[in-house]
Design a protein around this nucleic acid. Structure first.
Lengths: 165, 165
DNA sequence: TTGGAATGTCAACAAGGCTGACATAAAATA
DNA sequence: TATTTTATGTCAGCCTTGTTGACATTCCAA
């Protein structure tokens, strides 16, 4: 630890209100950058961020149920349904009746859906890759650690769950 | 650099698509956590995130002009104006005609406005402070470095500009 | 004096949240 | 078996916050 060479006061400088304020603003501007590229692509196709999120998580967990998606996305079923309906109509998503439980609907991307997901995540990954490359692995490790610490505990569980699948 | 002890392949593992996908999801969930506390407070008072952003940046740069705020927030004047009007009506913001240039309006928070800003940023800072504490200064430094690298160049300039003021 | 910049305002529209109410099918349980 | 609960879909309506377009005002600057 670098800190052991510092006085207590110096070691805690990263916790000052000013540092925290800067962190808050950095988060705000970075999130805008983070969504800017997909937003441009989505707009061309007449979709929005809501469609992106749905497509992203269906891609990560093919066959996921509607209820599952609701929990992850944190929106109402009415809101999700509106988005899902257009994705199904446009042939990006297909729905299968559940096998064990026929009340459930399992969601999958079609080839067309996967193509859009690919295009969106390519754009987003490119920006993230550029940032990662620029700063190196140690900074990236720190980045991920802070992000995880900032999530709501519930969401952290969902997040870690997704990583294991 | 730790990397020098690793093979090339190992050193670049942090740039795999899977790592990037995890980073994207972490960003999504963390941003939700990041806004969750202020959102709850805002809802009680009948405001939204748009009000929070306006109040935040007026607080950081008292006397800022409408145009300035538009650039930082990246919305249309009509959209900002709606938010600004309610903040003025509710006595959270006051507007002064510019001294040099009388077309400009300089925006300031009232005591009431500062109180709200305080309440919101306290909530947000508390979460960020908890995360920072939990992970330590090195991770925080990495976090900030990646966020800055992820911003649009224009926004990075605005962000660094705000830090200097 | 004229053009353009900074601002405000009105109207209309869209996306994407929300709530509430109601319908259906199937699973689970009393 | 009868009832309740769960998973899902759908309709209607509301809110916030973004958008465009049009138009007015004020005032700096060439």
């Amino acid at each position: 630890m670098q800190n052991q060479n510092r006085t207590m006061g110096e070691a805690l400088l990263y916790l000052t209100d000013e540092q925290l304020r800067q962190g808050i603003e950095a988060m705000f501007f970075a999130y805008r950058g983070f969504t800017a590229d997909p937003d441009r692509i989505l707009e061309e196709k007449g979709y929005g961020r809501a469609h992106h999120r749905a497509v992203h998580f269906i891609n990560c967990a093919p066959g996921t149920t509607v209820n599952n998606l609701l929990k992850i996305l944190g929106v109402t079923k009415q809101s999700l349904n509106r988005v899902l309906r257009t994705l199904i109509e446009d042939g990006l998503v297909i729905v299968n009746v559940g096998q064990r439980d026929k009340r459930e609907r399992n969601l999958f991307l079609t080839d067309k859906g996967r193509a859009l997901e690919q295009q969106l995540s390519d754009a987003q990954r490119n920006r993230m890759r550029a940032a990662y490359r620029q700063v190196g692995p140690d900074a990236v490790a720190g980045f991920r650690t802070v992000l995880e610490a900032m999530m709501d505990p519930e969401m952290r569980r969902a997040y870690l769950g997704l990583r294991q699948e």
